[in-house]
Design a protein around this nucleic acid. Sequence first.
DNA 1: TTGAAAGCGCTAACAT
DNA 2: ATGTTAGCGCTTTCAA
Lengths: 342, 342
Amino acid sequence: MKTNINVVAEKAGVSIATVSRAFNEKELVKEETRSRIIKIARDLNYKPSPIARGLSTQTTDTIGVILPDLVGEFFMDIIHGIDEEAYKSNRYVMVSSSHSQRNMVETLIEFMASGRVDGVILMAPQMHKEVDDFLSKSKRPIVLINSCSDLTNVVNFQIDNYQGAMTCVEHLIWHGYKEIAIIKGPAENCDAQERYLGYRDALAKNNLNVNHLFEVIGDFQIKSGYYAFLKLMNQTNKPDAIFISNDMMAIGAYEAAKFLKIKIPEDVAVVGFDDIYLSKLLNPRLTTMHVPISELGAKALNYLLKMISDEVNPKQAYKEVFPTELVIGGSCGCSNFYQSLI
Amino acid sequence: MKTNINVVAEKAGVSIATVSRAFNEKELVKEETRSRIIKIARDLNYKPSPIARGLSTQTTDTIGVILPDLVGEFFMDIIHGIDEEAYKSNRYVMVSSSHSQRNMVETLIEFMASGRVDGVILMAPQMHKEVDDFLSKSKRPIVLINSCSDLTNVVNFQIDNYQGAMTCVEHLIWHGYKEIAIIKGPAENCDAQERYLGYRDALAKNNLNVNHLFEVIGDFQIKSGYYAFLKLMNQTNKPDAIFISNDMMAIGAYEAAKFLKIKIPEDVAVVGFDDIYLSKLLNPRLTTMHVPISELGAKALNYLLKMISDEVNPKQAYKEVFPTELVIGGSCGCSNFYQSLI
DNA sequence: TTGAAAGCGCTAACAT
DNA sequence: ATGTTAGCGCTTTCAA
């Protein structure tokens, strides 16, 4: 026979209500009975069924994580941050990629409506309007991470792309570069947009002109960084520095530089963004912006748990912006940077 | 009022059993009634509760994935492969790291016993005996991936470490190297053990002596590759080639080579194992063994689903070994390899 | 401090 | 083809 709450109750000579209380509301049951019940439960190897409890309480102790993709260390870091905190709080983590933008909303709705999860952490770098609509309707709490910052009435944990980009560009300006180009990310991507604004404002703040020939668009992938670099450096007016909106494209740029026999940083300085592991391995080490991505996942989870437990008002919009940190490599013209992996 | 199966049944003027059938055993209900029910359900935005269904059927349509760690692209690839297939089959994926070996068994037991998942994909590169014991007792099916191959009576999807290592080493031998060293992985790690055996047997097969001074142990991390390389190349008798048991350590070796002003492959040839993304970026591109890790995750999931549905006998031991593929870079002495990232 | 009993929302065996 | 009903294993209100 399966050992459920009934057999424990019977063995212990109490009602199932008492067994339930012994496990949940410990203070409501006499210590002596409780310890007896617990001991019997252990002997029988009894564990309350989370499914049954879930049906009764409408909670599952699991949270959903929906990411645009499940590729590369970046997303792994997010999951890692979430997993660590979830483990501490005895929660389970269900992951899913968006499986194309089209399906993301469906996935989300299924997650929520189904009651499989108590809440969701969602990363949607290019937020569709439908998602925005849905967020406000959702019964279960949702925390956005790394998503567009122009959303109203949502809980959003983000990287400070704007300030980060500005710092990157100002670092180049500090080096004395005046012809600073940018390789942008995809137009519809919010990170890309914010980083672009940081770039623009850094130039403006320092009285440098904006040159449209110095703005090339990429897609955050290596290849586009390669071609963008070629395009920039094959012009008559060449930049003396390039702010590359993410490290992946910077890798492509390094390749292109090798191809063109252009030296970084002697012929053109570059800085990236994201501080992915790979950037340590470039030669010279890429100067880039570190983003605390794992920490962001961890913090998002903890906030979500508070929303679930009503420790914070789940209906209340909330925003947390995580500062980034410049990591000096040799690509910007700095010397004496820390290159070693060891 | 919450819209559950009762309100749908009432609106449709049928019993809840019919509603249930309309959703599950479509053939048992008249097409006309069915479509009416489905329409009403849609209007009411009704979705059957998976929790309630789970309580009744003892299934959750979710599978658990337990990995030693949630860091780096390698583990992300596994999850990715699993996620893609799970999505196709309408299954959900719960991930967890082992949170230290000690807790792995607990996590596993909780996963299984609790009924949160219908089955588990487990990666345990250094299998403790307790886990082995547990596996045979488990009520729910478990598929091991990338785990020790000496386990009996389990379902195990693995990389062909032995053959892969042998191929690596024979490639070096083919180049004419005779003093071939190895940087090993952790002694208790099964991948490491199997790769070591491949190395040994490749030497034996080709009548090369084994030299204990040419065997250095590492821990699969960059740093240990660095020091291992230093140790090997600071000996009086230096190897002319090194089989490095994984790419991470190869990265360390490249660093060490740079430090010692030793040229790869002119002064010493190296090959790695895993074909991680990083290895493409090394200069010269690392010759290494590609392992179909994402595919392994996908195949493991599909087999697990078959076990769950009893399409295959879940009690039947089963083993699938995935062949690896040599990726030629410049580190082994080959020329005309494909280096470009673009 | 404990028990009885009514759900939670669904499935499936049995009945019609 | 459809309905009735007894679970699935737990929580929680109400009563004692």
